[in-house]
């Protein structure tokens, strides 16, 4: 302690910074502060990581259920395509395939419009058809608040319900003033119908 005082007296506060013990001490304290904060962050992260992941998984499952309420089990098919981030097949309690839940991310106005599209599979042997059972938005934070974000209105999203690839190609109503954001939603729905359609075709039209 006495040595430090002597050094501080010798150099003073405004002396040369080289080999100055006061500066060394400053650096040490800064290191200590950042070290303590880093350890605390690490401990908290370790404590909460699993819990946060579980909550996120639960939320994702709830989002899929929201667009396909009759489904009870979702399985990731691990397919992707343009604008499709992931696709899940949905089966009901008896294990029959009832549809797909597709997470899509298509270009909107400011960035990607992330949404989940529910598709219902109907029809019997050999003649399956796909229609939209629901669309719910996951992340539209890149769209202009109050303008592009209006695509989240239920009226706009409801129009997709019951649509097939053919009827979607025919017409759809964009939100006025938010054409690009609306297009992002539409492109996502289209990509979901397209990929699910191809999956059904590749399985020979017979889906167990």
């Amino acid at each position: 302690m006495s040595e430090e005082n002597v050094l501080q007296e010798k150099h003073g506060k405004n002396s040369s910074p080289f080999l100055d013990f006061a500066h060394f001490k400053t650096a040490l304290i800064l290191l200590l502060i950042t070290g303590v904060v880093a350890v605390l962050l690490g401990v908290t992260n370790g404590m909460t990581k699993e819990k946060i992941a579980a909550i996120a998984a639960e939320k994702a499952d709830a989002a899929r259920k929201a667009v396909l309420p009759t489904a009870s089990v979702f399985t990731d098919l691990e397919y992707t395509s343009d604008n499709v981030l992931s696709i899940y097949e949905a089966r009901d309690g008896s294990g029959a395939l009832i549809g797909f839940a597709v997470e899509t991310g298509a270009q909107g106005f400011g960035g990607t419009v992330e949404q989940i599209v529910g598709l219902r599979v109907t029809g019997a042997n050999g003649a399956y058809s796909l229609s939209v059972s629901g669309v719910s938005l996951l992340d539209i934070s890149d769209e202009t608040p109050g303008v592009g974000s209006r695509v989240s209105s239920s009226g706009f999203l409801k129009q997709f319900e019951g649509m097939t690839a053919a009827s979607l190609a025919e017409s759809f109503d964009a939100v006025s003033g938010a054409t690009y954001s609306s297009e992002g939603v539409r492109a996502g729905v289209e990509a979901a119908l397209d990929l699910a359609g191809r999956i059904i075709q590749n399985s020979g039209g017979i889906v167990k």
Partner: peptide, 24 residues
């Protein structure tokens, strides 16, 4: 001499911890 850096580290670290705890 290093007060601003220290403030940022303390505040950011502290807020991140609260954020993680809140999420969990």
């Amino acid at each position: 001499q290093v007060r601003i850096v220290s403030y940022i580290v303390v505040i950011a670290g502290f807020v991140t911890i609260v954020d993680l705890l809140m999420q969990a």
